[in-house]
């Protein structure tokens, strides 16, 4: 089941800035992972609006047989990513992952595991070709995602 932007009360609309080059890299990683889900971190700054300045692909640590519709990142990869972000003066500001043959909207499973402080870029990969990326943030009540605008640089 998809979770759209249906809201019980208004929330501030957020924006995520990212270059065309980085967005293209995210698309290529989604295509490379196909038919499995690919995943990685968004490094950037907490300025308003947030800006992605680097991406950090990591392995999908789920079992091989469920990687077509599930992803997770091993704790050691999270620690390594966090340390590497800090070394270059950036923060982990979000996560990107791909949805093979599925829309770029968050699922109930995405909602269950989401954290409120991250931006989540989801890329739809149809028949091996990345078609669209959209970014989402969990609302304050943690019961729905709100789409945030992607400002492509």
């Amino acid at each position: 089941m998809e979770v759209g932007a249906g809201l019980s009360r208004p929330y501030k609309k957020t924006v995520l800035k990212i270059s065309q080059e980085l967005l293209k890299k995210i698309h290529l990683l989604g295509e490379k992972a196909y038919p499995e889900e690919g995943v990685g971190f968004l490094f950037g700054t907490e300025a308003d609006p947030r800006q992605v300045l680097s991406i950090y692909p990591v392995a999908n640590a789920r079992e091989k047989e469920v990687r077509h519709n599930r992803y997770t990142v091993a704790p050691q990869d999270i620690i390594r990513a966090d340390e590497d972000a800090e070394k270059i003066g950036l923060n982990i500001i979000g996560v990107f992952h791909s949805h093979p043959d599925h829309p770029s909207k968050p699922s109930e499973f995405d909602l269950k595991w989401a954290a409120p402080y991250f931006s989540y870029i989801i890329t739809s990969v149809q028949n091996g070709k990345a078609t669209e990326s959209r970014s989402w943030r969990l609302n304050e009540d943690r019961n729905a995602f709100i789409e945030e605008g992607i400002e492509s640089l």
Partner: peptide, 11 residues
């Protein structure tokens, strides 16, 4: 001890 975000999801 480290507090880490859980990174997980899927379509």
């Amino acid at each position: 001890l480290r507090i880490l975000p859980t990174i997980a999801g899927g379509k």
